[in-house]
């Protein structure tokens, strides 16, 4: 097939850039561990309340400034372990999120952070984040789940 010389250069340059890009993304994912949330642990979505760790939602300290935060989502609520829907953590804390849903698919987005994952019935979604900047972070649902979808929210406050 006839190909113009400039076109060959153009495609070679483009494909080369692409290759570099994919290698960088791959190294970041597999070598540096920046994988998207992909937890494969399952549970019975109808028995969430009696399945550990979801039988006890909320914040639990598991190390020095290291916490496990267990949250159960349902239409249209995040059960973060208290009525005020406010979780307070010290600055610099590393938090391991353990989240699932009791009913439909929900989103789990912590505004201004990389915490952003899908919650699907029967699956546990996990992600770890370290909070270096104090302030109030809004947790919200970013996958449509019904009429009250935009009312699903909670706050994580990083204390000075």
């Amino acid at each position: 097939m006839h190909m113009h010389k400039y076109e060959k250069i153009w495609l070679l340059f483009g494909t080369g850039t692409l290759l570099v890009f994919l290698i960088v993304v791959g190294i970041s994912a597999f070598y540096m561990g920046n994988q998207p949330p992909s937890c494969a642990v399952t549970l019975d979505p109808e028995k969430v309340d009696s399945t550990p760790p979801f039988d006890e939602t909320g914040l639990k300290q598991i190390g020095e400034n290291e916490y496990q935060l267990t949250i159960v989502a349902s239409a249209f609520n995040y059960d973060v372990g208290n009525k005020d829907k406010l979780v307070q953590i010290p600055k610099g804390a590393t938090v391991h999120f353990n989240v699932t849903t009791k009913d439909v698919v929900h989103g789990f987005e912590l505004v201004g952070t990389n915490v952003n994952m899908m919650l699907e019935p029967g699956y546990i979604s996990t992600y770890t984040n370290t909070f270096d900047k104090p302030g109030k972070y809004t947790l919200l649902c970013n996958e449509y789940c019904g009429t009250g979808h935009h009312l699903m929210t909670a706050t994580i406050e990083v204390m000075e």
Partner: peptide
């Protein structure tokens, strides 16, 4: 980029500064 979700009606969420 500031975190605003798609597929969502108007909401003030928890009333924090970010939203």
């Amino acid at each position: 980029l500031l975190g605003g979700p798609r597929r969502s009606a108007y909401s003030e969420y928890a009333g924090n500064a970010d939203t």
